[in-house]
Design a protein around this nucleic acid. Structure first.
Lengths: 222, 222, 222, 222
DNA sequence: GATGAATGAGGCTTCATTCAT
DNA sequence: TATGAATGAAGCCTCATTCAT
């Protein structure tokens, strides 16, 4: 018997996750076959079941896995002690980039969100809430600093996420340059809707786009 | 001699459509059983297949059926010779109301939109485009009248639909009063983002909300 | 209520029989749909059931109907007081022509014959036996007249029918001229196998082919 | 680790083939239930589908499997450098024996042959042609050696196969001894029809039946 | 007699999951 | 841990037959 190798185990798990994510994104749940998942992962069917309890478990693991990464990334990039507009901009840019980078994951999430029944998977709901709350804190901070007009932050947060989603779908098949423009357009759209006139001036002067920010265009390492 | 009765045929078809729409909205495709559809429609299993070729056909018939109604409604309510803000407001309000009224249909549509592969059902794509084009014409008209700032109408149309979707999901389980506020909030959010200062003034003076408009709160007869 | 019209009833029945025969000949039993039979007969599905108890009844009715006609024909054409070779020749020619003319019927019969289980339909077995017995009587007569070598008439009868079947299948898609040659070849093959040298000489002198015989090439009226 | 065992796979396939062959021979296609096939094979229903794509595939696999065995056997037993009469005799005897031994298979083949539409299964047509061509070569050889009268070998081949079929059906329920006589009778019938007088003499002297030939009565191992 | 919508038993087939190796 | 043949519950769908009109 081989030594249990947690490293290898995690790698295999991720492989399966990646492959399955692509499949679930393109096909309905019932159209994705465990046989095919195994075949593409170059594993025996039974092996899949060493890593995931069942098909549904695999399905939700995909969403959770990605959401955890996204949350982690956002927590790193957002600093409530910094400029609120920069934070808002980063939220938008990173969520957009993340969704565009993992369209497969995103589409699954997108599908599940539309499902109204009680949180299909508790952990998924939790993560979504955490991302949403981070955005709300950023928005509140903007209001406090007189950069965003007073507004319902709940409403704004949900609508912002909706806008990003719509933008990602729109530019699903576009190149990076086009996507970079799109996410800027999204930011400006939101700034027009929520920002004070001061915020708009600052934006036009480039104060919400520090040089260091340029890194977001780089591939986001997982 | 039993006469063929096309009237009855259409009625039956609609009955099945309504019942199935509810089921597909609450459950995934593979969770909806044709047996159960038949049971709820108080019909024999085989009878369903006299009206729909198969399960998928039934599924897409639901989407198409509702989209046709929505397009018809919008075409009735929007008049390009009238005030552009009123038209925009009506588009938003009616799309929102329609989606809120037929959450089952909406959720199916919402799920299918996320699917990127070639138009699963050509007719569905057609109808979506027609609704989108109507919205674009309204936006262009707004720009021409100096009520909306110059902007990319494609971008704006997709983002507006995304916003409405997000708002509908947010208020999915709320009462009518709450939903009425929500859709107004959506309109104002979009007006802030796209409107000129003149448009905002007109809105605050109520020029974009003629009294006759109140009817949209009434149930939309099918 | 219309007067019951036995004439019309029989006509309808034959129409259905003819159409169904063609279908059963080209497709397996389970591939033939009552829906399709009705459609081709330009009748409602239920109407078929006014003429035939069920699908199997229709199926066997086809075979029986044709076999009755064939037997009747053979009884008319064979006269045991006449030349045995002529009778044998006529048996072969008429069975061949009948099978070639009604390939659909023939193929059904052919399929059923291979089925070993107890006479699927008693009447069908009866008719087959009657045809076979007529052939045996002709063969016996030939032996009695010193035209056929002594042989087992049971064996010969079955083998002759097998030869005719094989020949019909061979020339299934050939023209009338080709088929006329084929059936002559069959007769000669059998005469070589069973005939005495005297029989062969008579055949070559044309004694077994009186002029009146030419009529067999004409369409066989039903 | 469970090794893939191609041997076992083939064995299972043959098991199913054997069981299904019996069922298809006794019942019509639509009367044979896959459930029953599985039950008799002592396998789960789904397992059948690991070996055969569907019911039709299983059906044709039966025919093809048997035809391949028959062709192989004939190729072993026929040697064109040897006496043509012996070869003809062997062809007849082996085809007869094979059909009599595998009546189930034979009946399927018999049924399918009557079907005129384009080769339902290309491989089946191929195999049939190969057997037929082998027989034609034997007949041609006989003519070349002055043992068979000049004749159309196509006609003769088809008629010979038809005769054998008819003989097998006749003796379907008879014992081995009776069948042995029957196939000799078939050979003699054909020799009378096609043979020269020299051939008949050689036959009566036993030159076409070398002692080693008696083995054909032994069970044909599969 | 004619019609054809409705019926529903029962077929074929799928595919997630298990488990002996 | 890995394998993949076997499992069998359960789904979709068909289609012969009925029966109210």
């Amino acid at each position: 018997m081989r030594k249990p190798n947690p490293q290898l185990h995690e790698t295999r798990r991720e492989q399966i996750l990646t492959i399955a994510a692509e499949m679930f994104a393109h096909q309905k749940f019932h159209e994705v076959l465990m046989d095919e998942v195994a075949r593409r992962a170059r594993l025996a069917k039974g092996t899949i079941y060493n890593y995931f309890k069942n098909k549904e478990d695999l399905y939700f693991a995909i969403i959770i896995h990605r959401l955890e990464h996204l949350l982690e990334l956002l927590q790193q990039r957002v600093n409530l002690k910094m400029d609120p507009l920069t934070n808002l901009r980063r939220m938008i840019i990173h969520i957009y980039s993340f969704m565009a980078k993992y369209p497969h994951f995103f589409q699954i999430w997108y599908k599940e969100k539309g499902q109204s029944r009680a949180p299909t998977h508790a952990r998924m709901g939790e993560l979504y809430q955490q991302i949403r709350e981070l955005l709300i804190r950023v928005l509140d901070d903007g209001v406090d600093h007189g950069l965003l007009r007073p507004h319902s932050p709940d409403f704004a947060a949900d609508i912002i996420l909706g806008i990003i989603e719509a933008a990602v779908i729109r530019t699903r098949d576009c190149g990076l340059e086009r996507q970079r423009k799109e996410r800027l357009q999204v930011y400006e759209f939101i700034l027009r809707a929520l920002g004070t006139s001061r915020a708009w001036k600052l934006h036009q002067m480039g104060y919400d786009e520090p040089k260091s920010e340029t890194r977001v265009d780089e591939p986001i390492s997982e």
